[in-house]
Design a binder for these strands. Structure first.
Length: 610
RNA sequence: GCGCCCGUAGCUCAGCUGGAUAGAGCAGUGGAUUUCUAAUCCACCGGUCGCAGGUUCGAGUCCUGCCGGGCGCGCCA
């Protein structure tokens, strides 16, 4: 039962570390990074004028958009030139202005502000989006390389609950982000289908099968048996049953022995009905794993795995157990070695994950192997990596724990409780979709595909609510917030998309938009254009940092800028002079494409009407 | 006790590799609909960026200490 157990036990936060660094932009490979192209041009000019090494030239955005599109602070030059930053800026501005064509350069205090010529900005960015369409934002950077992503990973015999939501949603987004960058992705559902608890469950099935309904909703029936069996083997529980516990241990031993008898038959059935239920839930979230490979798969790999670690000379026996001491690798792990084999000879979680990661490396030679697992398991993955490092495996840095915070209820109360009341994921999805259906009915009465849109909007609201936050932060699940659909929400982004589609439909119906665009008509939309230009870079960094929230935040910002522009009285799109309408339609189309692509990468639908 | 993490507006959060007056959403107040979906937009209200030092031309951002909160810590997963 690997990734999520009933109650999230731990919570960790971490700053971005590890391999999540972003390589310098390779222009040969990234011809279409849009804003990056302008940035590189300006940087080259600054380098030529100042002699600064390329790495030290950092451009930023001016505080006030009217000051320019890009800015360069001159403080760093002050020491070398022995002059005040404003004087340096003033001296540099004319030189750069002369060197750059189509980009104005002015000094404002200690800053150099650059403004790209409006027409060029619009033409470049909107032209690129138009040309690439659904592929806008994607690239071939990752061609020929593989990313393995372990996510979702529920445990059999129990329904998926809210605790699985974050891993599933984050994992799905990471799969899509990497795909967009040209990587081959392998999404793995590492189901928890092994362990002593299944011995107990089989015994529970033997004894109490008739007492629960296993026909209508097998997984809920299994949950009841699972909980009851857990109490029966818990010495501290009032329902402790010594005979049951012994039988459970025997059953697990039989399961582990590989004997294809009754125990294994029952276990197989449990696995089968559980997977069928998971598949439905995953489908609603738009998730499809490439590989379902549970812990049981690695049973035969356990002894070879231990042998391999022993052969590497890093294993030792301590207090009867086989461990790998890790203090030399990581001082923080001095007190917590990695246990590979218990004193009774059985293996542990770490052994299985070690077997799994060896297997994955052998099969995929991954660029990265991401474990989208809650922060409460941080120690486990830290140990796992430390073992790999101690074994001298060069690919150890490619293994990353993509950790995330807890999902909490109102008042920071834990939602998923070990005792009883699990919030079943399907029920939650139904609730959100119900709320969405009400809203869609009320706002768009005659919508033909009401049900489909309600599903898209409701689930989109839930997913976006999760993805918009930095993953390390806890998510406070407030139902009112998830079903409000206003403000910084998934439906807000979807709505912006749907409105744009509506404008484009009307334009097509009226035959507008064919004229040569007059880019001056969108001169006031440069914040929108600049934001559009950032899209490919955002996709790239969101993937590199395994942080989908960067894309979600980007989309919110894009929609905010765009809606604000669109609401201005002077910016009417349809029915204006043909050249004006053409230019504005190009902007609408560009935004529409960026939103659609962004939503898709986050795993959300982009309905054309809602 | 040890390890790791978090602490920005009443609430929920952004803030890119330290840089120009700290930004949104929600809640509250007041506006915008002969105008392309008002699931929108505009304005106002609201902040000692936990506290104290330090580094720096410059710190919400880096370092140290403290306070508050969370998670984890050998035979569970």
């Amino acid at each position: 039962m690997p990734r999520v157990e009933g109650a999230p036990r731990r919570l960790q936060r971490r700053r971005r570390i590890g391999t999540a660094r972003i390589a310098p932009c390779d222009r040969a490979r990234w011809p279409a990074l849009l804003m990056q192209a302008f940035v590189d041009t300006i940087r080259a000019a600054i380098a030529a004028a100042t002699g600064l090494p390329d790495a030290e030239i950092r451009l930023e955005s001016p505080k006030n958009p009217e000051q320019g599109d890009l800015a360069f602070p001159c403080f760093a030059l002050a020491k070398a030139q022995k002059a005040a930053p404003p004087a340096i800026a003033a001296a540099l501005a004319p030189k750069l202005a002369a060197a750059l064509s189509g980009i104005a350069c002015t000094a404002t205090g200690p800053y150099l502000n650059f403004q790209i010529e409006r027409g060029a900005l619009a033409r470049t960015i909107l032209g690129e989006i138009e040309a690439r369409g659904a592929a806008f934002g994607s690239s071939t950077e990752g061609a020929g390389r593989t990313i393995v992503i372990d996510y979702g990973s529920p445990n059999i015999a129990k329904p998926m609950h809210v605790g699985h939501l974050r891993s599933t949603i984050l994992g799905m987004a990471l799969v899509r982000l990497h795909q967009a960058l040209g990587y081959r992705t392998v999404g793995i559902n590492h189901i928890g289908d092994w362990g002593a608890q299944f011995g107990a469950l089989v015994v529970a099935l033997r004894r109490w099968r008739g007492e629960v309904d296993l026909e209508r909703d097998p997984v809920m029936g299994l949950l009841a048996l699972y909980q009851r069996s857990k109490a029966a083997i818990d010495e501290k529980s009032a329902s402790y049953d010594a005979a049951f516990a012994k039988e459970a241990r025997d059953a697990y031993r039989e399961l582990e022995s590989g004997t294809d008898g009754d125990v294994r038959k029952q276990w197989r059935w449990v696995t089968q009905v559980s997977l069928a239920a998971f598949a439905k839930t995953f489908a609603r979230l738009g998730v499809a794993h490439d590989l379902v490979r549970g812990e049981s798969y690695f049973e035969s790999h356990l002894q070879p795995t231990i042998a391999r670690v022993e052969a590497a000379g890093v294993a030792e026996v301590s207090q009867g157990a086989l461990v790998v001491m890790l203090g030399e690798i990581d001082k923080g792990l001095k007190e917590t070695p990695c246990l590979l084999r218990q004193s009774d000879g059985t293996t542990l979680y770490a052994t299985r994950d070690l077997a799994a990661v060896f297997d994955r490396w052998k099969e995929f030679e991954f660029e990265r192997c991401l474990y989208v697992v809650g922060g409460e398991q941080k120690l486990h993955f830290r140990q796992l990596k430390a073992v790999l490092k101690r074994m001298g495996l060069a690919w150890e840095p490619r293994v990353e724990h993509v950790d995330f915070g807890l999902l909490l209820g109102p008042g920071r109360v834990k939602i998923a409780s070990r005792k009883g009341a699990v919030l079943v994921l399907d029920e939650l999805l139904d609730e959100v979709v119900d709320a969405a259906r009400e809203r869609v009915k009320e706002k768009s009465a005659g919508l033909a595909n009401l049900e489909a849109v309600a599903e898209q909007v409701g689930i989109g609201a839930l997913v976006f609510n999760d993805l918009k936050r930095e993953r390390i932060k806890d998510v406070i699940f407030e139902k009112d917030e998830v079903t409000s659909f206003e403000g910084e929400t998934g439906p807000y982004v979807m709505y912006t998309h749907a409105r744009s589609c509506s404008i484009l439909r009307k334009a097509a119906a009226a035959g507008e938009g064919g004229a040569e665009p007059d880019w001056r008509a969108i001169a006031s939309a440069s914040p929108v254009l600049l934001q559009l230009g950032r899209f490919p870079t955002v996709v790239r960094t969101a993937a590199a940092k395994a942080e989908p929230s960067e894309l979600a935040q980007y989309l919110l910002g894009l929609c905010r800028e765009y809606n604000s522009w669109l609401a201005e009285r002077g910016n009417k799109v349809l029915g204006e002079a043909p050249a004006v309408t053409s230019a504005r339609l190009a902007l609408v189309r560009g935004v529409k494409i960026a939103i659609a692509n962004g939503l898709r990468l986050l795993g959300l639908a982009a309905p054309e009407e809602m």
